[in-house]
Design a protein around this nucleic acid. Structure first.
Lengths: 229, 229
DNA sequence: GTCTATAGGGGGATAGAC
DNA sequence: GTCTATCCCCCTATAGAC
């Protein structure tokens, strides 16, 4: 009945691990290394070295290397999908049965992906890269809690768009929503490269500006006219 | 002076290796494995096993594992960038000094990415995935011939768009072109997943259809109105 | 050009002491 | 909970015979 768990702690999204400093340090070190080198190019030894903990502690706290990666990924992806669903619910309540304006749908869908980035100015670039890697990688280790959230997002958002743009076929809506994820994923993954290529003088890396640009681009793309064959 | 090189053959894009079956077999096996498992998750042993050649032959023909990956990547990326430049040149000659219509620019930019996919119906899905991996991966091993092509593409295309949409700031154009790459990259990388999620009945995986959709989406996105802050 | 054999290093996981 | 030590695997690259 103690406040601190006496058994192996369960996976959680909230990272309230103040009483388990090693576990927390492992998560932080793994997060930074995954962002920098990609999920496939980081060894347990790199992680434990960076965290200043013992090699065996990863297997004790997470069970396996894959479980550690799954927890890092879930800590970023699950809150985003929950926020997407909350924002869409709010928008639908505001319009009171009427179709939600397209731009509001797109903003509710894309803006949660930037919430981690804006929260911390120091860790911003790292979070940007990590989010990009999460979204543009196939076959990521996925925790159990992630799948139902994904399914609900992929169900409710096309429905909302369909109510706003009733003439657009559902398959086209689904493709265009996939396109929209690609817009943000690719921008996050290569944001620093664009700055380097273009000289970096004028194009600031301000996440809010990028998000505005992405929302404008995707809203226009979703609204593009469509002619049946 | 013989037709067949007597020394270690140099890297080439055209894959005219009929006289060197092992080298060609290695390239083919590596291509398929990279598409299936990603560039970071394939060992030389897997490649040589699948190709039915000796382990040491990779180092003999390519020098190192990274050089092999670089050649596979260049064999896909370089022709695309060359075709992009050729198509833009053709379009500019057609309009004879006038700005090129936006949709023609977007099509010249995106359609080469689909040329490998459409060419072979059997290897289509593999080429789709490989192209997606090429575009949505950071820090790929790059051959020397790739960089100048990339630079010319990133110079000429924003210029062309600027002539067609003179009111759009260059930085915004660059962001939106990066968005457009993300659209295609993400769609290619996850095309099969979308089919599985949506049931796969109605949304055909026809590459031409997807390309049309991507062109429409990106053209509308590039044309989106933009208000200065 | 192709092969065998091996060097030499890093990988994930775990047993068992504390 | 934490640590050391170790097992056993797979990896890339290369030397040297054919």
């Amino acid at each position: 009945m103690s406040a601190t768990p006496s058994t192996k702690p369960a996976a959680s999204d909230t990272a309230d691990n103040r009483d388990a400093p090693t576990r927390c340090r492992i998560l932080e070190a793994a997060t930074a290394l995954y962002a920098e080198h990609g999920f496939d190019n980081v060894s347990l030894r790199q992680i434990t070295r960076a965290a200043g903990v013992n090699l065996a502690s990863v297997n004790y706290h997470f069970g396996s290397k894959d479980n550690l990666a799954a927890e890092v990924i879930a800590s970023r992806v699950n809150p985003i999908n929950r926020q997407r669903l909350d924002l869409l619910t709010s928008a639908e309540q505001l319009t009171d049965g009427e179709p939600v304006p397209l731009k509001a749908i797109v903003r509710a869908f894309l803006s949660p992906m930037f919430s981690f980035v804006a929260s911390d100015p120091e860790a911003g670039p790292m979070n940007l890269k990590l989010m990009g890697r999460c979204m543009s990688q196939r076959d990521l280790p996925m925790s159990e809690a992630s799948l139902p959230l994904f399914r609900e997002v992929t169900r409710r958002y096309p429905d909302a768009v369909k109510r706003t743009l009733p003439d657009l076929p559902v398959e086209v809506i689904q493709w265009r929503m996939l396109f929209s994820v690609g817009v943000v994923a690719h921008a996050m993954l290569h944001a620093d490269l664009l700055n380097r290529i273009t000289g970096g003088a004028s194009s600031r890396l301000d996440p809010d500006t990028v998000m505005q640009q992405a929302v404008d681009f995707c809203t226009a793309g979703l609204r593009a006219s469509w002619q049946p064959d």
